[in-house]
Amino acid sequence: MEEKYFEISAENLKKFVDSIIADNFEVIAPTDKDGGTFYGKISRFEEANLDILLPKMSYKEYLLPKTETLLEYSFSGVDTEIKDGLEAVAGANEKRVIFGGRPCDAGAGPIMEKVFNWDYKDEFFNERFKNLTIVSIACEKPDNYCFCTEMQLSPESSYGSDILLKKAEGKYFAVVTSEKGLNLIEPYINLFKETAKAQVPADKDWKKLFEIERTKSFLDKNFEHNYFQDRFLSCIGCGVCTYTCPTCHCFDIQDEGNLKEGRRIRNWDSCQFGVFTLHTSGHNPRVTQGDRYRQRLMHKFKIYSEKFDKYLCVGCGRCSRNCPEDIDIKEVAKDLADMA
């Protein structure tokens, strides 16, 4: 679809959000709770915190739930009955809107979509992704941990958003990039005023701190390098980086149940855990935390891009902000680029 542009007053935006909530949309927005800001369901516009740069967690769980039932099984005697877990996912997210997220979070969806569809199609992901409507807000002031610009996005990128809102004096410009976005505003179109692209303020010239291609070229050449072992001695393998990351998508498959019934589920997993690649024989290709952090860097900045032509990172900086031991991935990526 060709992009469409609208103008909406701050007041109308509030009306719009309250209206879709009234019309039974589930609106997920950054909201203050539990001593921090997290994505969560809001019941009115005011509950959304649109000032926060980024909630602590991404909204990945709406695309890849932390636990998802792949199938259910039941036994009667020696007979096994299997029920497809996909049935429960059909139509998921149809009335769900992510509102007020940032371009980096929005960028994660289409990046992840690639791995879930490169050959076998993961319809669990697809069904959720297809139906989810994403209304993002462009950033005005990224912080020191942000590096979306380096990651081929920008604080004002509409990539992955169905609607991107750009704040202006007392109003917003809405860049609608998809039918989904259009359909969402359609019933409330009187709150919007269509406008021309030229009216929308142009993106600022966001400066890059380093070239990610250089990071990649370091990784291309250096699998064994002291940097990994030395720098990540301070990594405790907590996995917070992977769990809060909008693009990390590794999972584990497990069965749980009793002798009558149960289910096969997939749970989030992390390459930072020692058991992630541990063979039954006891052999582990990635023994040290340095090996494991290297894998994360490789996957983000090399492996994925070679396979899918996209870096597996949107530069949101969550892994740095949330790291209990203050490992800053931007700093690391820059180090690598500098060494290349």
Binding site: V115, Y120, D269, P285, I303
Partner: peptide, 24 residues
């Protein structure tokens, strides 16, 4: 190669060796 695998479908992210998904 006999890397640890879960999905076998190139999704779960476990069997990477370099840019290769061993399962695929």
């Amino acid at each position: 190669l006999e890397n640890r695998m879960k999905c076998g479908l190139g999704k779960c992210g476990r069997c990477n060796v370099g840019s290769v998904y061993v399962c695929k």
